[in-house]
Computed example of a mutant assay.
Amino acid sequence: MKINDALRLIAGIMLIISLLLTHFVHPNWVFFTLFIALNLLQSAFTKWCPMITILRKFGLED
């Protein structure tokens, strides 16, 4: 698996988890969804994502 594939998979899983937590646990979990969205937006403009740094340390290929 390449880094971009893993990054999209992780982002999708995190969004699903945060929405499920919002629906079933507490409405304030929506702020976790907001955090994920803001991180995706900032990475689009800065071309830097903390998760990519972590995935590279795990040895995933670009």
Rank of each mutant, 00 (worst) to 15 (best):
K2V: 06
K2I: 05
N4C: 11
N4Q: 14
D5K: 12
D5I: 15
D5Q: 15
A6W: 00
A6D: 12
A6L: 14
L7T: 02
R8T: 13
R8G: 13
R8M: 15
R8I: 14
L9H: 12
L9P: 00
L9M: 13
A11S: 11
I13D: 13
M14I: 07
L15H: 06
I16G: 11
I17N: 06
I17W: 03
I17R: 01
S18C: 05
S18N: 03
L19K: 00
L20W: 05
L21R: 03
L21W: 00
T22K: 02
T22R: 06
H23T: 12
F24M: 10
F24L: 10
F24P: 04
F24T: 04
F24G: 03
F24K: 09
V25S: 08
V25C: 09
H26P: 03
H26A: 10
H26L: 08
H26T: 07
H26Y: 11
P27I: 07
P27W: 04
P27N: 15
P27Q: 06
P27C: 09
N28H: 07
F31N: 15
F31Q: 13
F31S: 14
F32T: 03
F32G: 01
F32M: 10
T33D: 10
L34I: 04
L34H: 03
L34C: 09
L34P: 05
F35I: 00
I36E: 00
I36C: 03
I36H: 00
I36Y: 01
I36W: 02
I36K: 02
A37E: 08
A37Y: 02
A37C: 14
A37F: 14
L38G: 11
L38F: 12
L38D: 03
N39P: 01
N39G: 12
N39E: 08
N39V: 00
N39T: 06
L40Y: 12
L40W: 12
L40A: 15
L40G: 11
L41A: 12
L41F: 11
L41K: 10
Q42T: 15
A44R: 15
A44V: 13
F45P: 08
F45T: 13
F45V: 12
T46L: 15
T46I: 11
K47G: 03
K47P: 06
W48C: 07
W48N: 14
W48P: 04
W48Y: 15
C49T: 03
P50C: 10
P50T: 07
M51Q: 06
I52A: 05
I52H: 07
T53N: 05
T53V: 04
I54D: 02
L55F: 00
R56N: 09
R56W: 01
K57T: 04
K57M: 01
K57Y: 03
F58T: 08
G59S: 05
G59K: 00
G59V: 04
L60W: 05
E61L: 11
D62L: 05
D62Q: 11
D62I: 08
